[in-house]
């Protein structure tokens, strides 16, 4: 019912516009600025990572430290689908819908299993229990020799069987990125809809005071599970596209890599947790700063005689710290506090 409520729809559309505009600019940059398409694809990946993560973390305040497990499971599900379809001799295009469905499905199954235990926990307990899920799964893949064990799953060959050599080239470089842009648009709409609907208010109530929300009759468990599964499914599809389709090699060591979760947190916090624009802005800054310090600043320093590896991280870390002290609620949070102009405020969602 809430779905067709015209006010909700109008709100959702209004809210999604600024984010969609940023993605449109990114998409244009991807095609128009030569030699930087992968930089924009990387920003896109991290923006999506942040957005998908944000749906649960930003809106409920629960930090899922094992979030990358959704991406990993999704990537593996996509990989297995590709292998199955290749051995069945199916036409290549079937992989995209079936693989993404499998990825989302696998991630949702994981989400419901983890949710059953972990969603009863609060704050830091939840955060750390989910670390346990991620690490436990990784060592399970390695120790029980599942899908290639620690060596990993190689699906480039299968993708080439499905799409042909030329087709694979196209899928792995351009199509995978375009599909990610599609997923990004979809994620924006989902987020905007949640923010405008009953669910958004419920999640916000949970973030403010879960017990009070429960006492007021909000079905806390239902909304938490819904948000968790949505966030997980989007993550699963992202992992499928960025790692399985684009790279074709899945190693437990690198796909269950906890640093991705930490980066997701950085991006969401930098931009502003719980906001729609936050993760996108966060990813732009985080990857932008990293790229600038890596590609320009480090060689510059080397040019004047300072030669040490890891320089750019030494530069980046204090900037991050200064940033977080200056704007603990993220950029969007800071702008909302400072900007009084109602027209501009309307776009800070």
């Amino acid at each position: 019912m809430a779905l067709v409520d015209p006010w909700t729809v109008r709100e959702a559309v209004r809210k999604s516009l600024p984010a969609l505009a940023i993605y449109a600019v990114l998409l244009a940059a991807y095609f128009l600025i030569p030699g930087k398409s992968q930089l924009f694809a990387t920003i896109l990946f991290y923006a999506l990572l942040g957005q998908a993560f944000n749906i649960f973390m930003g809106m409920t305040g629960y930090v899922d430290f094992g979030y990358v497990a959704f991406l990993a499971v999704g990537a593996y599900a996509f990989g297995v689908t590709a292998m199955a379809l290749a051995s069945l001799g199916s036409p290549g295009w079937t992989l995209i819908p079936l693989g993404l469905l499998a990825a989302a499905g696998a991630a949702m199954i994981l989400a419901s299993m983890v949710g059953a235990i972990a969603l009863r926990l609060r704050g830091a307990y939840f955060a750390i229990a989910t670390i346990g899920v991620n690490e436990g799964l990784r060592y399970f893949f390695e120790g029980a020799n599942i899908l290639g064990g620690s060596i990993g799953l190689y699906i480039v060959k299968d993708l080439k069987t499905l799409f042909g050599d030329e087709g694979y080239q196209f899928m792995a470089t351009i199509a995978a990125d375009l599909l990610m842009f599609g997923l990004a648009g979809f994620t924006v709409l989902v987020t905007a809809w949640i923010l405008s609907s009953r669910m958004g208010f419920a999640l916000q109530a949970i973030r403010e005071d879960e017990d009070a929300a429960r006492a007021l009759g909000v079905n806390v468990t239902k909304y938490k599970v819904l948000a968790f599964m949505t966030s997980g499914a989007l993550g699963g599809m992202l992992g499928a596209l960025n790692w399985a389709l684009k790279e074709g090699v899945l190693e437990p060591e690198t796909v269950f890599f906890i640093v991705y979760t930490v980066e997701a947190i950085i991006i969401v916090v930098l931009g502003g947790a719980g906001t729609l624009l936050g993760p996108i802005v966060g990813a732009l800054i985080y990857i932008g700063l990293n790229y600038v310090s890596n590609v320009y600043a480090a060689p510059l320093l080397e040019g004047i005689g300072i030669k040490a590896s890891g320089l750019h991280l030494i530069l980046l870390a204090p900037i991050l710290i200064a940033f977080i002290i200056a704007a603990p609620n993220g950029i969007i949070g800071l702008l909302r506090e400072r900007i009084r102009n109602p027209t501009i405020r309307r776009f800070l969602v």
């Binding site: 930087k36 992968q38 990387t42 991290y46 790279e247 060591e253 690198t254 990293n290």
Partner: peptide, 30 residues
Amino acid sequence: KDRVKSLVERLIKEDQVQFLLAPYSSGLTA
């Protein structure tokens, strides 16, 4: 591995490099 992609593209397209040393490990190479 999510740093490698943009850097490799940069090397090829902006630094005009046709010959590359692969990154370390199979994950990054992939």
